[in-house]
Design a protein around this nucleic acid. Sequence first.
RNA 1: CGGGAUGUGGCGCAGCUUGGUAGCGCACCUGGUUUGGGACCAGGGGGUCGCCGGUUCAAAUCCGGCCAUCCCGACCA
Length: 572
Amino acid sequence: MYWSELFIPTLRDDPAEAEAVSHKLLVRAGYIRQLAAGHYSMLPLGQRVRSKVARIIEEEMDRIGGQRFHLPALHPAEIWKRSGRWDVMGDEMFRLVDRKGADNALGMTHEEVFALLATELFSYKDLPQIWYQIQTKFRDEPRPKSGLLRVREFTMKDSYSLDVDETGLGEAFDRHHGAYLRIFSRLGLHVVDVEASSGAMGGSGSIEFMVRSGAGEDWIVTCDGCDYRSNLEKATSKLATVEDADTVPEPSRFGTPDLHTIKALAEAFPDIAAPDRQIKTLVYLIDDEVTLVLLRGDHDLLEQKLIDATGGIKVRPAQPEEIVAALGAHPGSLGAVGVTGLRIVADHALSGRRGMTTGANTDDWHLRDVDVERDVAVDTWASLRTVRAGESCPNCDGQLDLWKGIEVGHIFKLGTRYSEAMNALVQDESGASLPIVMGSYGIGVERGMAAIVEASHDERGIVWPVAVAPYEVVVTVLRPDDEAASTAARDVYSGLTDAGVEVILDDRAERPGVKFADAELVGFPYRVTVGPKGVANGVAEVTRRAGLETVEVALSDVVDHIVTAVERGRGG
RNA sequence: CGGGAUGUGGCGCAGCUUGGUAGCGCACCUGGUUUGGGACCAGGGGGUCGCCGGUUCAAAUCCGGCCAUCCCGACCA
């Protein structure tokens, strides 16, 4: 292709609205344009990268036996009602009413539709199956941001494994795990696979694939001593033990006027109310049920852990009035001692603790000498607290590190929730009907693109890996009006084209500086520079985008030189 | 949804305090000179000043409402 004929609208300035590097560069280099918050048009260069990413995903899915489908994006409400997710998904699902007055939704994921198709599987002999598609998803994100990193409309490769039992699911899960590692490696992404929360998907286990980046929105915990790694939402750590007295008397009240925070109480009563000696009592409404959430005074709740521990769908902190109605006191004087009739969820760090201090459920009064197991009717023990950097690894003596990552993929063991809802059953050897055991696996295509840019750029622009670059090579003619240079450049161009290299000829009537700057901004992996002086000497220059080192190559060898380099790069 | 900010040719911005003629840089068009790191000269085209309403002889500018976008917190590929 000739650059002079293409639509590559590069900009000299960063768009004012962009913050994330990938957002700035993809807009500036002419890959994308925003239509609305969270909706981006893919320009020709963007579309080329997008389809290359999708192609790599497709190849690796096919390699593990995946069969590609294409499902509707618009779904009748009925299937979502059957799975129960019509209500669960809340405002995140785009909903619309058609001319008949029927409710519809734009698909945010496709478990329901695939499970429905799986009702045409009848025998265990039909399993296993891996089904997938690469398709547009719609999610009414409360806050789209950072260009392609978080949007409301995006392309997802979503696959679904169908197995007769948990063992089969485990195998399909592992195969996807391997395929995902290969995909991200081919995309040039260094991913870390971490334990993760399953969130609204449900199921028994999930792994996320994270790319380390300051633009990421997830916190990842890794150990410096072993291979422990986890999303913060799932992470645990070993805590230093706190020495408590062997026995403590019955709890007793003491006045604490105007002491409404952990810190204030600790300062006023340092010997009995150090933060790690207090019980923090939070009040939550979990599916409209008032629930007390107990943590050690110096710990912070991680809400997703509470959701995972309770299976709640609608989870929110209680309003002050609701708290007073439930406990008879205001925040700052709350506690769980003697409370009956309310669900109590407590963090493991409180287990076995004695001599604790907590609110007395009377304003301005606290209780001391609390023995958690003796005095509090805990219904559920769970890991609820937020792990902090520097704490000890749960599996070894190492220290935990905390960093931000971009979630580029997520795989879930779903189980039978959707197959049961859709009545997707198969008969086993004995003739008994069993629900198909499902897994679900997702990769965000455009987010993957953005993650590559986040991870691979310099001050001049994008540095694409060969495997996903919109074109592999740009041939830059320094003087298109010089016949010798122009002819030599066209020869290189057609030689590369004939050799199957994706090449673009920068034949624009621009000065060299403009062409170099654009080539580097756009990020072609290789540049062949052809100018009158070089041509007179029978040479061109080859510049690798990563590192920008330049070598002089005889014109007669340029095609071979590039073909070798590009072929090495294509494998990822 | 809570908090903060912004909306002026395609992009980046000034003008608004103190109402009256909409301006600069880049990009674009024409001609010329230039040509190995975002050239120069001359001429030129393009703007409902986010939208609606109000105040006023007169509104980009003042007032009210709405909308949109971005950033920070609660959600996710």
